[in-house]
Design a protein around this nucleic acid. Sequence first.
DNA 1: CTGTTAGCGCATTCAG
DNA 2: CTGAATGCGCTAACAG
Lengths: 329, 329
Amino acid sequence: MVTINDIADKAGVSRTTVSRVLNESGYVSEDARKRVLRIIEETGYRPSEQAKSLRLKRTKVIGVVLPKLFTETSSRMANGLDDVFQQNGYQMLLASSNLDHEQERRQLQLLESRRVDGIILTATNRDDELLHTLRDIRVPVVALGQDLPEVSSVYFDDYHAAVELAEHMVQSGRSRIGFIGVDESDYAVGVLRRQGFLDTMNKHGLEVRPEWMQTADFTIECGRAAFEQMTTSTTELPDAVLAVTDRLAVGAMQAAKEKGLQVPQDIGFAGIGATDMSQYVTPALTTVDYKYEEAGREAAAMLLRSLKQPNVEKSRMGYGLLKRDSLSY
Amino acid sequence: MVTINDIADKAGVSRTTVSRVLNESGYVSEDARKRVLRIIEETGYRPSEQAKSLRLKRTKVIGVVLPKLFTETSSRMANGLDDVFQQNGYQMLLASSNLDHEQERRQLQLLESRRVDGIILTATNRDDELLHTLRDIRVPVVALGQDLPEVSSVYFDDYHAAVELAEHMVQSGRSRIGFIGVDESDYAVGVLRRQGFLDTMNKHGLEVRPEWMQTADFTIECGRAAFEQMTTSTTELPDAVLAVTDRLAVGAMQAAKEKGLQVPQDIGFAGIGATDMSQYVTPALTTVDYKYEEAGREAAAMLLRSLKQPNVEKSRMGYGLLKRDSLSY
DNA sequence: CTGTTAGCGCATTCAG
DNA sequence: CTGAATGCGCTAACAG
């Protein structure tokens, strides 16, 4: 690999001069500049960002921790992140935690040892251990998707989104509403959305049978299975189901259709996330639009800010209810 | 940031010794090792991968160039890549070309200057300029999704996939088949799939009206628009449509349904890609499963091989036809 | 306008 | 078993 020294030698100047024309800093005679530029062209020399970083103590690289590399959700957030980072000359180094809390911490440490300038953390949990690791790391971090105490965060209003969605279901005339959630270790999705649902049901004095409360993983298949569970053990069927993600809702709705139930006449469905798919299933799925790209952009911008001026910011993103055919008569 | 020198000082040894305990190389007295380890623990010292890379001339980072950061297709390939890279201690540095050929080359050069150990290139085109840039770069490259001349490639059998799909449509009794393709600058998707379709139609002596051949972008909306185009300008409707991607097919099918056409009775649809969505639209979409994750794993493994032993390998991935309700009576 | 010197954080000879 | 010296490729005083 050709280095700055090779260029200096061939051009008959010192490497300082080469560095000057490279960075357009300081004075360089037109003559010397020309020679250097020509040699660079000839050799295809490419300055080592690596060496530069060591010297400059900044890498122009942002570490991005994702729970499950690429689901539609994280993809959309990543797209938003990239918009802003690319614009500002940063690249993203990926680290996936595979939903493993232990590995999540390891990845953070690995990113630290790579000396990334900052980290975007798409966490799913808020363990003490994670928070502890976060405190130890001397790299600016912005959490995306969860509100982490004492850490800059861009998150969604999961509680109120669930409330509004449940409210809408009730207003649409549903009363026997089932729920498909996920494990509580995911605070935003597992706890807050469930809480919003339960509080709303309570407020309206609506019964929530235990068998109508299901917990699943994030897959379509699990949505289907959860619906089976919900409907086998009882004679009275729910007249609607709120699932905490679109995929879960799609799976459940599919199961219902296969059972011969009419959607939305016999039973209605709603999800959260406004995935691509939600619009094209039949009937189209009522859901909550979370503006993931925008959240990504916001998180990136926030991180960039904290690179200049260390601070802790919080930003709660808005959302929009998309009323579609899976729920309306 | 605490460095190896700080550790050495506080532990009362030279940095050589610290390096030795870090890498478990050479002899170190139990006493010294204990002291060093303790100091490291206390200070939270994390060796700089950056400095290490400069010294060792390897970064353990792989550059990944994606056309449009994260679509479902690239996400699935990225997941496959990550499987293998993570397993082998490599991290992925992202670079998106945003479908801009100029930027695609810049990204490659940027990755080179970052001294990534290798590059996975998810190209869409095969311009001479791109191939030229590829030749200049002194970094092992594996192309993913396109077969690039003189470059290691993992690609799909686009031509035969299109042939088999078209053949299946004909066998199902369709004869007036429309086509929704994409721009020819994308060789695999734009040229090969179209060719496969046309050859098959020709072989069966089936007419392909000019207005039945549409070109679109990669969005669902464009699929819808293409179908409108296809059906406004003529009185005779096609009895089936082959779209080069699932999204295009979904858009077109949606448009047909809105027009009051019965699918698959009046008109059938087929796509390529086996996206998540394809299975949950109504009727379920006939499509070709491309095994993107596996392609990603294969590409990663191939790159890893060429890091040890420079070479040019080619691997054509298999595919599977998924016959579903969008085409069968 | 230009070159000399120094050092970023680390691993690796080569002598003890 | 350990340390001193060297250099990876680059930028930044500082002194001409």
